[in-house]
Design a binder for these strands. Structure first.
Lengths: 112, 112
DNA sequence: TCTATATTCTACTATCCAGTTATATATGAC
DNA sequence: GTCATATATAACTGGATAGTAGAATATAGA
């Protein structure tokens, strides 16, 4: 956000990126790519999602700049563009765990 | 994501947080709160969004843990829970700008 | 008390999108 | 060329949600 002007266009671009991460299926795909490059059919097998569905999600992640595509024969291999997005997921998971700890602590206090 | 098991429940929680950021109106509200605490009607004036709409978005951001609520008289004051979320927006804006630079550079090369 | 104001809640509409199915495209093997 | 496989695309459906309008709630002040 920063010392920068948030134009409607920038807000739209920004929200589009976060929206790309706001879907369990896409996070699952990113998690699968943590270990490295995978073909679409690999990812279908790993995630258990439908093939067309996976293909659509991968395209969305690709256009959001989180993953890259490499074509080889009839196969399409996708890989993380960089590790930044995984770091965000880790940080966000940390927030979630912290909140759960707080909730548990509050619960104990109220019972004491 | 991390060396952690991504259970369906965690994926759901995680996506919910990112989804909360995947909406221009909510990013606008967060940007407005960068300067500090604001009442609902302040935020309505700043953003130009409808009052009920702002109220709903604030509640969503609150339950996602990004902002806190303080009641005083008939007013409700909202403030950022911490600065982490703004840092993410900054980082994400950085990615967007980098991609735009790349696109422009690629365009120039293709014309040369 | 009554009135005005700030906020939240409820009900509704329109839009968006995840998931599915079926089809199309592309590449390699024969 | 035909056939099989991998991926992408198109069309459709159901469910979620942004936005709005109006009612309900709560608080402060006269």
């Amino acid at each position: 956000m920063a010392p920068r002007v948030m134009t409607p266009a920038l807000l739209e671009e920004l929200s589009e990126r976060f929206k790309a991460l706001g879907e369990p299926a896409r996070l699952q795909l990113l998690a699968a790519l943590r270990q490295g490059e995978h073909s679409v059919s690999d990812l279908v097998a790993i995630t258990g999602l439908g093939q067309a569905n996976v293909s659509k999600h991968l395209q969305l992640l690709c256009s959001a700049g989180f993953i890259n595509r490499r074509k080889e024969g009839t196969f399409a291999y996708y890989a993380l563009a960089d590790s930044e997005v995984l770091q965000w997921c880790d940080l966000m998971c940390g927030r979630i765990e912290a909140e759960q700890r707080e909730r548990r602590a509050a619960l104990k206090l109220s019972r004491a």
